[in-house]
Amino acid sequence: MAQPNRPLSPHLQVYKWGLHMALSILHRATGVALGAGTLLLAWWLMAIASGPEAYAQVRDCMTGWLGRLVLFGFTWALMLHLCNGVRHLVWDTGCGFELSTVRVSNQLVLWGSVILTLVAWGVGYGLIGG
């Protein structure tokens, strides 16, 4: 076991809060939230496999205002995890760690996820005509 009185590195609260920190925590939070969201995906697929009545029930739930709110959050969580995940893959190659680059990629990740979410919902609403 580890020795009990080793000096510990300072934890999160000593650092100045920044967008990169928020995005880092959101990456983990959205990952866990998407895990819960997979239950919706499984429910949807199992309903289609079960027949028209089960499918109609799921469709009614997902097109209600609460369903739409959850699905909108689901979409944004997925897009943020996707955009920030791509940034993580770039970081894994050893590139993009300079503070000036991180400031730019912060904005790309944040606004990229917002724009992708709005595009997906805009096209979706366009298809059903409101």
Partner: peptide, 23 residues
């Protein structure tokens, strides 16, 4: 993660195309 990048884009685009679809 690398595999999920194109798969997620494909999945979301497909679901958007299925909005309001019948059984």
């Amino acid at each position: 993660a690398v595999a999920l990048v194109p798969l997620t884009v494909w999945f979301v685009a497909s679901i958007v195309g299925l909005v309001g679809a019948d059984y």
